[in-house]
């Protein structure tokens, strides 16, 4: 007979994580809880004399099915919020009443019948299961093989998206950008031809004007850039060198040696 401690451990291991299906908010938490349920069910199978099914349960459910669920959760985005708006009014209470009614019906039906459990336990060892599978149920196995192939092909067909227009080459993309008025060459690095090559100093074009695009937009958003005019002012009048506006990040002071050059 089955030890009550073992049964109640299995019951706690399966029912408590299963309740997360009803009460947990995040789908990933639910998926991980269901993995716990599957492990509890595997223990139950081994307890009931089905070690082969217990191992298959672990391999198929925790190893493949729940991982597939987690894959799809990551694919569609784990932050998919569940809308709390009720489309059907009172659906929550109807669902609870329906589930409770189902529970009452099933438990009443089961408690009506009395089975005398067989004295000797069954042997669900792999060789016994295989002997039955490939003799009495061999046609079912063949049909299930066809079903699995069909399911795999069906999943491939359903998730396949045909390319609607031919892939655009890099040459076409670049031509489009230039026709739209974009600069055909790379943006200059910050500090190119400027007197300082810090990241917040814009590059200078051949006429000596600062090129605004050469400085990262992040620094602009943080107001950590310099305009460049203070450097030119310092060139013409060294006394203005200290008067430049303080910026967020520290810049090395231009040394006197550089000014002499």
């Amino acid at each position: 007979m089955i030890s009550p401690v073992l049964f109640w451990s299995i019951a706690a291991l399966t029912v408590i994580p299963a309740l997360s299906l009803l009460f947990a908010r995040k789908a990933v938490h639910i998926a991980v809880s269901i993995i716990g349920v599957m492990i509890g069910l595997a223990v139950a199978y081994v307890t009931l004399g089905a070690p082969f099914l217990g191992v298959v349960q672990i391999v198929v459910y925790t190893g493949a099915v729940m991982m597939l669920f987690l894959f799809v959760l990551m694919l569609v985005g784990v932050d998919q919020r569940e809308s709390l708006k009720e489309t059907l009014t009172g659906q929550r209470w109807i669902a609870f009443v329906g589930a409770a009614g189902l529970a009452i019906l099933l438990i009443a039906a089961i408690s009506e019948v009395a089975f005398e459990p067989a004295e000797e336990g069954v042997s669900g060892e792999p060789d016994a299961v295989a002997m039955l599978l490939f003799t009495d149920y061999v046609v079912v196995i063949e049909i299930l093989g066809a079903l699995l192939i069909t399911a795999a092909v069906g999943a491939l067909v359903m998730t396949h998206t045909p390319r609607l227009r031919p892939r655009r080459t890099q040459q076409e993309l670049q031509r489009e950008r230039v026709l739209a008025g974009a600069n055909p060459v790379n943006k200059p690095m910050p500090g190119v031809y400027a007197r300082h090559n810090a990241l917040d100093v814009p590059a200078l074009d051949p006429e000596g004007k600062p090129i605004d695009e050469s400085v990262s937009r992040v620094l602009e958003a943080r107001h950590q850039t310099t305009e460049g005019f203070e450097w030119r002012a310092a060139l013409t009048d060294p006394s203005k060198k200290k008067a430049r506006p303080a910026s967020g990040i520290s810049k090395p002071e231009p040394t006197d040696k550089e000014d002499e050059r």
């Binding site: 089955i2 019951a11 299963a18 089975f115």
Partner: peptide
């Protein structure tokens, strides 16, 4: 403990699953 206890456990799990199908969107 009789194996019938596991049938009752199966009923509880089935009802939780059915309620989840009805409740969750």
């Amino acid at each position: 403990m009789s194996p019938m206890a596991f049938v009752y456990l199966a009923v509880v799990l089935f009802v939780i699953g059915a309620a989840a199908v009805l409740l969750r969107r």
